[in-house]
């Protein structure tokens, strides 16, 4: 005779119900808690969960699997490398490169879509448009705007399309400087 713990009674439908419902509740709760915990760093940084700050332009290109457009003409008034590189993943994603001026302060923002003509709006800080005018860029009619940025300063914004990819350049520099940069923008080799 072997005296072990009492044998299991026959199962009832309620056992099955409790088993599956309990598993779904626990796994669902765990998944929600994990996702919540994962969103904390983005929340602390004040950015959406799918928007990541990366180390440099190379990492942005690696993540997006595209070459980024960079201006061939780069005025000496702007610091290189960019002080921040942010990336939004996905088909409608893109990258935002923010540059400081050599005398300090934010000077330029270059935002570009990775695969579409639509620049991801979440990569562009909100701004109020003061006025806009058409300008010609390599035979393309594009829009030049004067805007008030989130810092309260007046910036210029130039939006155009290059190889079926949307680009927006915001700068505190001159219009000539912006157009020259836009004209020389090419995919980094």
């Amino acid at each position: 005779m072997s005296a072990q713990a009492p044998a299991a009674p026959a199962w009832r439908p309620s056992d099955l119900w409790r088993t599956f419902a309990g598993l779904i509740v626990v796994l669902g709760t765990a998944a929600m808690l994990l996702a919540g915990l994962d969103s904390v760093p983005s929340w602390v940084a004040g950015e959406p969960r799918d928007l990541r700050r990366v180390k440099d332009v190379e990492e942005a290109e690696r993540r997006l699997k595209v070459r980024l457009f960079l201006p061939g003409y780069f005025p000496e008034t702007i610091e290189w490398p960019p002080h921040s590189v942010r990336v939004m993943q996905g088909r409608t994603g893109g990258a935002a490169l923010a540059f400081d001026g050599r005398t300090g302060g934010h000077y330029m923002l270059l935002v570009q879509a990775a695969r579409t003509t639509e620049v991801p709006s979440r990569l562009l800080p909100p701004a109020t448009v003061l006025d806009e005018s058409p300008v010609w860029l390599r035979g393309q009619r594009v829009t030049l705007r004067r805007i008030v940025g989130p810092d309260g300063n007046v910036w210029r914004e130039l939006a155009w399309t290059e190889k079926e990819r949307g680009l927006v350049l915001r700068s505190r520099g001159t219009v000539d400087e912006m157009l020259k940069m836009a004209r020389t923008a090419r995919e980094e080799p």
Binding site: A8, F20, A31
Partner: peptide, 23 residues
């Protein structure tokens, strides 16, 4: 007295063995 084993203990072990690695 000692608590009885659950009648669906085997099923529960199988579900945990399957669900946790997927998670």
């Amino acid at each position: 007295p000692a608590p009885a084993r659950s009648p669906v203990a085997g099923l529960r072990v199988a579900l945990v063995a399957l669900a946790v690695p997927i998670l």
